[in-house]
Simulated assay, not measured.
Amino acid sequence: MKSTNQALLVLMLATFGSALIRFQCSQLVVERLDPLVNPGMLPSTHVHQIVGGNSFNATMDPKKDMPAEDFSNYWTAVLYFRAKNGTFKRVPQTSQISGATAGITVYYMQDALYDTAQKSKVTAFKPGFRMFIGDVNARSKAEVTKYRQLTYTCMENTGTREPETLNFPQKPCKAGIMVNQRFPTCWDGKNLDSPDHMAHMAYPESGTFESGGPCPASHPVRTAQVLFEVVWDTSKFNNKADWPADGSQPFVWSFGDATGYANHADYVFGWKGDALQKILDTACVVNCAGAKTQNTAAMNKCAQKAVVNENIDGWLTELPGGHEVQYGPAPRAVKYVA
């Protein structure tokens, strides 16, 4: 097993206040693999973009594939543009760090993002821990609101952070679409996983993580807030003359959701030893004790060759895996044929 301690994600590490960790993870691979929801399936049901440790594979056995040197893996579905003629094109990403290759910006927070004090005590995840957030079958607002804070921001410029919506923006976004995925922050303290990859985690009894509400008795251990930020460069597809003839917004997730309500994400913990806990317990800015950093060029070198041999780029006549475009909440599906 190749050690990825020095050659995977990190970390142009930028921290704010006391151990609010924010770092850019460059893209490891884009393919149809999902060891959390579809373990062992080659290919998995839909295309994902993955960042993190290069031990990523179709099974991710925590006893075999997560050595102490490794780091976490983070992944989301991929966004596609659907043109008026029914063809699809993968939407590229932009990075919040100059020179970084696509990927995800990841936060670990003790308190709300805007609370620079970050004084709360939180517990780091344990080896073998994994979790999932969202519902790939959600097609209505009612179905997605139970997950709290899976959102989209139509960016006017690179600094735009609001307003946030639960569905895809319905207008062209000058600087792209930012997708936010905030994971639950209360752990049952026992299980590293659960059959649905969610039951071992819960939200605070009241409000969201930012509200500071207490964890429920069933899930008493307060963990860090894990937040993914992904910026999709939709600016290349802002000509409404190329949008579907019925005027509907043109973006669709790789599994066919055209509403945006099925926003979801996966997380597999893999920090070295107690490095994450030490960082979360330490007041630090930029350089945190126990955190090793690397420059952008080194970060970009960490890539993995796809094991699924299929065309996911170019102009496609259908989404990889043959998924139909689905609208909601009414049960309506359209399978385009160019």
Results as ranks from 00 to 15, higher is better:
M1T: 09
A19E: 02
V47L: 09
G52Y: 01
N57W: 11
A58W: 05
P67G: 06
A68C: 11
N73R: 04
W75F: 15
Y80N: 09
K89Y: 11
S95F: 11
G103R: 00
M109Y: 09
L113F: 15
K119C: 11
K119S: 15
K126T: 13
P127C: 07
G128S: 01
I133K: 06
S140F: 00
K141I: 08
T145C: 04
E164M: 13
E164S: 13
L166I: 08
P169E: 03
P172M: 00
P172W: 00
M178T: 02
T185W: 01
N191T: 09
H197P: 07
A199L: 11
A202V: 12
G207I: 14
P216R: 11
V221D: 13
E229S: 08
E229P: 04
N238E: 03
D242S: 10
P244H: 06
Q249I: 02
Y261G: 03
V268C: 07
D274R: 11
I279N: 00
L280G: 04
D281C: 07
A283G: 15
A289W: 05
G290C: 09
Q294H: 10
A298R: 01
K301D: 09
V307S: 06
N309A: 09
I312A: 03
G314T: 14
G314L: 14
E324V: 05
E324A: 12
G328I: 03
A330E: 15
R332V: 15
A333D: 12
V337A: 10
V337G: 08
